[in-house]
Amino acid sequence: MGNDINILVVDDEEDMCWALENILKMEDYNVVTTTSGNEALKIIKEKAFNIAFVDIKLPDFDGMELARLIKQEDSRISIIMISGYYYKDDSDIQKGLHDGIYLTFVGKPFDNVEIRKVARRALELSKR
């Protein structure tokens, strides 16, 4: 199923990018990673992505705001927020979910299976 699916990973930790890339590559997705919010905005202008994994706390950007900008740029991208700082039931997270800016939230640390599951589900939803 893989090769035509593009996924963007935005996390300020390089090792975190490495982990997500390897988790997703097992499903044969094309994975592009960046540690910067500004860089991410540039990348999505050049290439179409199906899914973006966005870390909420970035040094140069508020992840929530980045998600909104990505959505503005390309509304077809399914965004999945990841964070070690927030919990799923935090009101900030719930608000973004409610507004439909992102599809779901995954807290760190996560199971690799869970990442692949939310990616698959995002693709299914976007197909409908």
Binding site: E13, G84, K108, F110, D111, N112
Partner: peptide, 25 residues
């Protein structure tokens, strides 16, 4: 504590994902 929790979760998350990749490959 807030900052520390976040700071701890990143290396924990990386280690845990890497361990799972190890099992999967």
């Amino acid at each position: 504590a807030g900052g520390i929790a976040h700071e701890l979760r990143n290396p924990l998350c990386i280690s845990s994902s890497a361990a799972q990749i190890l099992l999967e490959s």
